[in-house]
Computed example of a mutant assay.
Amino acid sequence: MAAFNPAFDPTIVPSVDAVREAALNVRSFMPASRLERSDVLTNELGVEVWLKLELENPTGSFKVRGAFNVLAGLSAEERRAGVVASSAGNHGLGVAYAAKAFETPAMLYVPRTAPQVKKDGIRTLGAIVNDEALDYDAAMVLAKAHAERHGIRFINPCLGLDLLAGQGTVALELLEQLPSVGTVLICTGGGGLLGGMGAVLRMLAPQVRIVGVQSEETAAMTKSVHAGHVVDSPVTPTLADGLAGQIDADALHIGQQCADEMLLVTEAELGETIAWLHRTLDLKVEGAGAVTVAALRHGRVPSLSGPVVAVVSGRNIDESRLHTLLSTY
């Protein structure tokens, strides 16, 4: 793959130095997430495959990295005033975790369809949950209005230099763990992880092929990148609830500059992969975190160049949903 020099907008995509600073904050509360070679996938695909196990982080996903970095950068006065965020669930867990660590009041707006395990987890961490919104985008509208009404920080789940710098620490760790990485598959919703990791990989390892993966029912980024402009996507039921929602022009910039390609998996492929991960690798993975492995297992990634790393992020799946998938596939 021919590398190119990205034209990053510095108001959207963080610098590598900012990510390195964020790494100091992240390492203060969690070790590097494990990178584990998958012998099963390696043998099946004929190329070396590794899994970056972000689902083992506190709160079960990469989201806690960015949330903690945001809270770490707030003033004492801002922390006392509190924060508000909108989330499909995992960002909310990350914000709630960081808010508890910094003794900051936190209000989370989530869609009523968010998995109960995520809503319960946020409340257990001490944050307030409002789940009156019909969907993810409606929850964001409510959260932004709350921030404006109370004059407090709104923590966007997918955008913000401090947030993306935190997410980019995944890539710094990866380059330390596997300098020879050839392809990285990144679970992609609004572009937070893609933007953070892309900021690092494009500058420090431009030879690495970056593949963003979504489900067909959470395809706002893929459709927009392919069209060259923001495309609205219908809100439909999906196993990948953590990737749901629309994107804006800033997120599109991330997709255009940070992904060599955007790929989609079907809901059936995703469901089968969640069940396969549980049975074969003993991993409990939600839909948003399983899209990367689904793309590999179902032949969605052409011309694999190894070593391949699939980011697996998100263990917060309701038991009832998991049991249904295990009985179906």
Rank of each mutant, 00 (worst) to 15 (best):
A76P: 03
R80I: 03
R65N: 06
L53S: 03
W50N: 00
E78S: 11
P31K: 12
D39I: 04
S75F: 13
R79I: 06
S86Q: 09
T42S: 15
R37M: 14
L45M: 06
R37N: 12
V64G: 00
L74D: 03
L74A: 02
V26W: 01
A72R: 08
A72C: 02
T42V: 13
D39Y: 08
R79A: 06
V64Q: 00
L55T: 10
A67L: 09
F68I: 04
L35E: 05
E56G: 12
V49A: 12
S86R: 13
R37V: 12
P31H: 15
V26E: 01
E36H: 14
G82R: 02
V47F: 06
F62K: 03
V64I: 10
N57Y: 15
V70Q: 03
G82L: 01
L51P: 02
S75N: 07
N43Y: 11
D39G: 04
V26A: 04
R37F: 13
S86K: 09
E54N: 08
F68V: 09
R65T: 04
L51E: 04
G82M: 00
M30C: 10
E36C: 10
S28L: 12
P31A: 12
P58T: 05
S33Y: 06
S38G: 00
P31R: 13
L51K: 13
